[in-house]
Design a protein around this nucleic acid. Structure first.
Lengths: 150, 150
DNA sequence: TTAATAAAGGATATAAGGGTCTTTTATTAG
DNA sequence: CTAATAAAAGACCCTTATATCCTTTATTAA
């Protein structure tokens, strides 16, 4: 078989990194120790400079918090912890992912469905609704309780 | 909000084009009229040369059939019509799409799940199973009966 | 056999995502 | 105040997906 090897994906790499980073911060930051970009890059095996860009973006969008200087780093405020996962996906991959047609048809909708519309919508909305109801704190808690590797 | 505007997707553009093209061929080719690349490019509003590449790939993989020369073009053999949609996705986007972890973690599985594993799997496997059971002929029939725009 | 047609194939160009490097700004300890 | 630290910011590069162009091969009609 001849393939493209294009390896399509649901979430971009930036988004995958962002989600893992947020969970990492939740798991490793304490009042006495903020998590640094270097530490995170090592712990998650993500290129440091690329991760930094993503962390900047999350900070600008107030998904995570940061302080500069010695002993500086990233942490989660109470407000941050209540941010839901779909928001992170939206920031990293845009608002279209859970709304756009699988076949890329702009006019596709439930009244004018594309050939795969209902198949796709059923499962897409299912995932989306779960991400909308799951916030960072809850996600981090699950990861901790189930001892899940990130 | 500052976003990437990366507009992530489930299926690559090549794959979206491929699926639409296959349905187009099913709908428009007859024993007396084969569908040409130009006609398809116009009808589907896809760049002709890019579409040609995709059609070549589908032909090589025996998803569609073609003949050269005057009155040549693309059509579906009986064997082609029985090809299932997941096969087209596999050819265009590789075999990883419906198997890889949402967060890109290689070690993620049901026994060692990532934070989003079960949420994602439900979505992904559901769609995948439908695509595995839906062949080209059936898809084209639905499109025709429901008068769906492609 | 020749001209016309249309797919196949190869090479190349463009845009976006992914990744790296350097400089600037803010903070803290001494 | 100064030196050290670490995030913020901007410029840049590489790879891949997307898109285009040009040549070759196969087929048909005249």
């Amino acid at each position: 078989m001849t393939t493209n090897q294009s390896e399509s994906h649901v979430l971009s790499k930036s988004c995958q990194y962002a989600l893992r980073a947020v969970v990492y911060i939740a798991a490793h930051s304490t009042t006495t120790h903020l998590v640094g970009a270097q530490e995170m890059a090592d712990g998650l095996d993500i290129p440091k400079h690329f991760l930094s860009k993503i962390l900047q973006q999350l900070t600008r969008n107030q998904v995570i918090s940061s302080t500069k200087g010695p002993h500086g780093g990233f942490f989660l405020s109470k407000e941050n912890e209540r941010i839901t996962i779909d928001r992170i996906v939206e920031i990293m991959d845009g608002p279209g992912l859970f709304k756009a047609c699988v076949l890329g048809l702009p006019q596709c909708s439930s009244t004018k469905p594309c050939p795969l519309h209902f198949q796709a919508v059923e499962y897409r909305d299912g995932l989306y609704n779960k991400l909308k109801r799951l916030n960072i704190k809850e996600l981090a808690l699950v990861v901790h309780q189930e001892n899940i590797k990130i």
